[in-house]
């Protein structure tokens, strides 16, 4: 296929070369004829002069001279017209080629200037450009930008398996600051939530290795498990006292799910497991106590 496609191209090219070669040959022949026409006219003039002076039939010589002059003039005009047309055509072709070359050079200059401005501009204003990337992500203010930068630094410093922090509130702030969507309303919601959290809960949350869970629906479905199991448990008040789920419930039942903390979302499985274990153990001990009292009565 490639050879078949290349064959017409080569044929066209060869035809174009042949045509141009023929045209150039014809042009050179025309120029040679024009050069020879001058010598022919001079020799013809000498011949007719001699004939007019030596021959008796002068009128016939004059008529022949007239015919020759007319033919020579017509032939000269024809030659000159052909040559001038070819010269004009060649000049126009060269002007078109130069115009096309100018256009291509202009395109190259444009591409080069864009290329140069892009790289040199990026080198000169790289920091500003990096910052401007984040301006579209609601980092309009300088404070937001600094907070985001500090958050990124904190994210780089912190590891998911970090140790338990001493003070709960600053640790939670540091842990929440590298949130993927650092918006001020989220921070306010987080602060209100963390302020209601007990110290024990916060310490347990910091132990959680999964800081950024992806499934948000778990935060809505998880609290339903202890709520469903709560009416079946006879000592739900004690369990509630030992594992206070009210702040967590109030936080998880909010309609704005994007304001929830990722740590809260991740904390529910372990919490619910512990709650179920505690309830079961409590129920078991309660059952044992009831059994013992029943046996004592009887």
């Amino acid at each position: 296929m490639a050879t078949a496609a290349a064959m017409p191209m080569s044929r066209e090219a060869s035809n174009y070369d042949e045509i141009s070669m023929q045209q150039s040959l014809m042009f050179s022949d025309s120029l040679k004829d024009l050069k020879n026409l001058r010598t022919q006219l001079y020799s013809a003039a000498e011949y007719f002069e001699l004939s007019y002076t030596n021959d008796d039939q002068k009128q016939m010589v004059v008529e022949t001279l007239k015919d020759y002059a007319i033919k020579a003039l017509v032939n000269t005009v024809d030659h000159l017209g052909s040559v001038t047309y070819k010269v004009n055509d060649l000049l126009d072709e060269k002007v078109d080629e130069v115009s096309g070359t100018e256009l291509r050079v202009s395109c190259i200059e444009q591409v080069w200037s864009d290329y140069f401005n892009y790289f040199v501009g990026e080198t000169m204003h790289g920091a500003n450009r990096t910052k401007s990337k984040y301006i579209g992500c609601s980092l309009d203010d300088e404070d937001d930008w600094h907070q985001f930068r500090n958050a990124v630094r904190a994210t780089i410093r912190e590891t998911p398996t970090s140790s338990v922090r001493e003070t709960p509130t600053p640790s939670v702030r540091r842990g929440r600051s590298p949130s993927p969507s650092p918006r001020p309303p989220q921070r306010s919601a987080t602060f209100s939530f963390t302020s209601t959290m007990p110290k024990k809960e916060l310490e347990k949350r910091t132990v959680s290795p999964h800081r950024f869970p992806l499934l948000r629906s778990g935060s809505v479905s998880r609290p339903t498990t202890p709520n469903k199991s709560r009416p079946t448990t006879p000592t739900s008040a004690g369990a509630r006292r030992r594992y206070p789920s009210e702040p967590r419930k109030s936080a998880s039942m909010r309609i704005q799910p994007e304001k929830e903390s990722p740590k809260d979302i991740e904390q529910f499985p372990s919490k619910s497991k512990r709650l179920l274990k505690a309830l079961l153990s409590r129920r078991k001990s309660k059952k044992d106590e009831m059994l013992y009292t029943y046996l004592d009565e009887y």
């Binding site: 010269v87 004009n88 000049l91 060269k94 002007v95 130069v98 115009s99 070359t101 100018e102 050079v105 190259i108 200059e109 080069w112």
Partner: peptide, 23 residues
């Protein structure tokens, strides 16, 4: 006319040569 065309062509070629040298 041929001289004029050749002059303009020469000017264009000079401009092109300078631009190409700059590039």
């Amino acid at each position: 006319t041929t001289k004029s065309k050749l002059a303009s062509l020469n000017e264009k070629l000079d401009t092109l040569e300078r631009r190409l040298e700059l590039l």
